[in-house]
Simulated scan of single mutants.
Amino acid sequence: MTYPTRNLVYGLSFMAAVMVLGVVGYLLAGWDLSDAVYMVVISIFTVGYGEVRPLQEEGLRGFTMLLIVLGCFSVIFVSGALVQFLMEGQIRRALGLRRMSAELKKLNQHTIICGYGRIGRMVAADLKSGQRPFIIVDKDVRRLETAREAGYLTLEGEATEESVLLEAGVTRAAVLATVLPSDAMNVFITLSARDLNPELVIIARGEDPATERKLIQAGANRVVLPAHIGAERISHLILFPEAAELIDDAEKSQHLKQELGDLGLEMEEAVIPKFSPFVGKCVGDLESLHSGAFLVVALHRRGGGTELRPGRETLLHAGDGVVAVSRGSNLAKLLDLSDGK
């Protein structure tokens, strides 16, 4: 709790205590509850109306004077604390905006994340873990407040507007990720960003597979279809439940992909079709193609079970899942070739 907030809470608590004390005092003097509450209110806030009942007893007069003094003090204290509380919020907001403006000008070769929804949150968390500078652009004030609480640099505005992209430093940025749930907005942002920075790497989200071509034509370097990826993942888990031990550990999987990427390699997974020329052949036959472009590291058997580091003489069967390390070749296309070449 900040200092102004604490003062405001203390002031309101003191005022409430004074009001309760006043009501109890008048009740003990024989007044009814309605008259007691009314007398306490006009005394504390010094309205100046006449007394509800004549104050002829010396003790009751002294009690009323004490109530007026304590009430005035509580009102003054609460008023000051309230002003301090409101001013602190304005000052903090002004300083925060100035700090963000200064940090925006310092950004260079950074990433712009358009949209702070479910995917935007995950992207921001990963970039923070990777210590990559980035800024979040969104028009939703509540989402931006959540992002700022997480320590992220934010910019309020509509990412489809060129002025907002320029303020986010699109001309100095290295990557722009537009992850809004609207395909039309992602296409528009991609067009605007590509026009402002021809060298920018643009990664766009797409909901409808038919939008992928439009995003590429608009200037996106990569298009990600979350629904398609999720469906493939679910299908894979249904077909090969034992594969979890190989790919479910997110930390190990990410580390492995990074290590392979540094070597110019990537991991691929594909199912052997029923009429593939590799049905009944050995792992060595697959690895010998394309001058050793593939290295089989695991087999997910159709009947169940996973074979890690299978030998070159291991037979391949229809429906088996092949996990291989390659140099950018298309494993799925290779397994489906009619002549095996």
Rank of each mutant, 00 (worst) to 15 (best):
F85Y: 14
F85H: 12
L86W: 14
M87F: 08
E88V: 03
G89K: 12
Q90G: 04
Q90W: 13
R92K: 12
R93Y: 14
R93H: 11
R93K: 14
A94Y: 11
G96Y: 05
E103W: 04
L104N: 07
L104A: 11
K105R: 11
K106F: 06
Q109H: 15
Q109R: 11
I112E: 06
G115D: 08
G115C: 04
Y116R: 07
G117N: 07
R118W: 07
I119Q: 09
R121P: 00
R121L: 03
M122K: 12
V123K: 02
A124V: 04
A125F: 10
Q131N: 11
Q131L: 08
P133H: 00
P133K: 00
P133W: 00
F134S: 03
D138M: 07
K139R: 15
V141I: 08
V141Q: 11
R142M: 09
R142W: 13
R143T: 04
E145L: 07
R148E: 15
E149M: 03
G151H: 06
L153W: 05
L155P: 15
A159H: 07
A159E: 08
V164H: 05
L165T: 00
E167V: 00
A168D: 13
G169R: 03
G169C: 09
G169Q: 05
R172G: 15
A173E: 03
A173K: 04
V175T: 12
L176G: 01
L176W: 03
L176A: 03
L176F: 10
A177F: 15
T178L: 01
V179H: 05
V179A: 04
L180Y: 10
L180G: 01
P181A: 01
S182R: 10
S182L: 09
M185P: 00
N186Y: 15
V187H: 06
I189K: 06
L191H: 09
S192F: 00
P198H: 06
P198E: 10
L200D: 08
I202W: 15
I203G: 02
A204M: 09
R205Y: 13
G206V: 09
